[in-house]
């Protein structure tokens, strides 16, 4: 017997019906809602590819049962900005060419957004500590941290 779960994704109300209420939020985003920007990396809440904001907090969603999201607000990488209206973080990642394969970037940008929301002026060490919940395997770490610093400066100056 399917159960229905209501929550918001990127500001829009969604209602999903599922037989398995343990279905991870990641699978719902990707396979039910067509939001492919949140990536699968491990299914173990270890690598951070699936990072989203749930009620403003950064959370890995690859093992987060959909029932636990009912009534909450989810923001994904698609909710941050677009090519037409990039979020300062997305623009800074492009400016710094902060990525190689790019598979980890959605989760990293979401983690960085959560950091800047609570700390608009992070030090390099604070950025690194916040991003330790994400894995980058290609070795783009320094570019990524530069991009976060750059976005923070732009946002402090009122760029977003």
């Amino acid at each position: 017997m399917p159960r229905t779960f209501d929550f918001t994704v990127n500001g829009k109300a969604v209602s999903v019906s599922l037989d398995n209420e343990e279905t991870p939020l990641l699978d719902v985003l990707r396979n039910k809602l067509g939001l492919m920007g949140t990536r699968f990396g491990c299914g173990l809440e270890q690598c951070g590819c699936c990072m989203v904001l749930i009620d403003g907090e950064p959370e890995k969603c690859c093992a987060k049962p959909v029932w636990s999201i009912a009534g909450k607000s989810v923001i994904t990488i698609e909710g941050l900005g677009s090519a037409e209206r990039p979020h300062p973080l997305q623009q800074a990642f492009l400016d710094e060419q902060a990525g190689q394969c790019g598979y980890c970037l959605s989760g990293i940008i979401v983690s960085a957004k959560a950091l800047l929301d609570r700390n608009p002026s992070p030090t390099r060490a604070e950025i690194a500590a916040a991003l330790d919940s994400n894995i980058c395997r290609c070795g783009s770490h320094n570019r990524i941290m530069r991009a976060v610093e750059k976005a923070a400066a732009i946002m402090r100056a009122g760029g977003a």
Partner: peptide, 19 residues
């Protein structure tokens, strides 16, 4: 030169075979 494939990846487009 800026990477041609990077924008899709920072905006969360279906950029990978997984998508």
């Amino acid at each position: 030169t800026a990477r041609l494939d990077l924008p899709g990846k920072v905006f969360g487009a279906p950029a990978f075979i997984h998508d």
